[in-house]
């Protein structure tokens, strides 16, 4: 029982990082109805810049965090400009494939700058504490708190501000959003930047708790964010949170009881089952019609 609870705690902590990744992902998808495969690699570009700042400028955790977030936003805007902005309404698949091509590009650029397989990443806080029989890590608590705060923040932004109203209008109907005077292009770019910033925070916290960065991080971030987003429900903020936490817990339990090899398998079984039984995800509405027809991907 203690094992089970400790696994659950560990899972929730790891899941918090998935939730953060899914949060940025779902924001982009919600507003653009397009899949940005370069989401993880853009975060990695930020993380590599952060690592450079750490190695050459001896930047501390906060400095590295700032560089990582800023780098992720810049890389995200580059992706938006090249893969999404120029694409016409019906070219969702082309945009997705284009973002995949840029993924390859960003990954190789990162490897060119820092060619070794692993580099140290400054840890945020390595303190641990016992809560009764349970072991807690401070950096993971920070991650969980960040996930909750950012999810609440994004939710408040969407439902409580003028910018949020604009974003929800674009999600509802882009043409009508134009017609009521919303600058759709500007709002979309801002949403993209915001999502990349959330991803940057996620990337920083994950890497700080691993204390290292590898070129595999981009793919890892895209995959974990995508899985958590799909489990929770596309475009849903509570869904991103719950999807991430659920994925974390399922991974932690299966790692403990079934072994590391079956851990990833369990995650994909969960994803496949969720898609087949509840295609809209746990929190999403049923897929909308134009989406169902695969038009806008």
């Amino acid at each position: 029982m203690i094992d089970f609870l400790q696994n659950t705690i560990d899972g929730v902590m790891t899941g918090a990082s998935y939730a953060l990744l899914a949060l940025g992902f779902t924001l982009i998808f919600g507003v653009m109805r397009r899949l940005n495969l370069s989401y993880g690699p853009s975060i990695m570009v930020g993380a590599y810049l952060g690592t450079l700042a750490h190695l050459h400028l001896a930047a501390g955790p906060l400095g590295v965090a700032a560089v990582t977030v800023a780098g992720a936003v810049l890389a995200g805007l580059y992706v938006e400009r090249l893969c999404f902005a120029p694409m016409a309404a019906g070219a969702g698949i082309a945009a997705m494939v284009s973002s995949f091509a840029i993924w390859m590009q960003l990954e190789q650029a990162a490897i060119l700058v820092l060619p070794r397989h692993t580099y140290p990443f400054p840890p945020l806080a390595s303190a641990t504490a016992w809560l009764g029989p349970f072991l807690l890590r401070l950096d993971q608590l920070i991650m969980l708190a960040s996930a909750l705060v950012l999810a609440l923040g994004v939710q408040a932004l969407l439902y409580g501000t003028r910018f949020g109203l604009a974003l929800r209008a674009i999600i509802g109907n882009p043409t009508a959003a134009h017609l009521v005077g919303i600058d759709v292009r500007r709002a979309t770019v801002l949403a993209f930047a915001l999502a990349s910033a959330v991803g940057g925070v996620a990337g920083f916290l994950v890497l700080a708790s691993d204390a290292q960065v590898t070129p595999m991080f981009g793919m890892w971030a895209t995959m974990k964010g995508l899985i958590a987003m799909m489990i929770g429900g596309l475009g849903s903020i509570p869904g991103a949170l719950v999807g991430g936490l659920l994925l974390g817990v399922v991974e932690a339990q299966s790692q403990w009881y079934l072994g590391p090899q079956l851990r990833d398998l369990a995650a994909y079984v969960l994803l496949f089952a969720c898609l087949v039984w509840r295609p809209g995800g746990l929190f999403g509405a049923a897929p909308v019609r134009d989406l169902a027809r695969g038009r806008s991907l």
Partner: peptide
């Protein structure tokens, strides 16, 4: 201001929010 063909309201927003969106500018 254009009232478009087929209306194009914001389906997932309340009536009240639709009106507020109309005053976006």
């Amino acid at each position: 201001a254009l009232v478009p063909e087929n209306r194009l309201v914001f389906p997932q927003m309340s009536v009240h929010e639709n009106l507020l969106a109309g005053a976006y500018q």
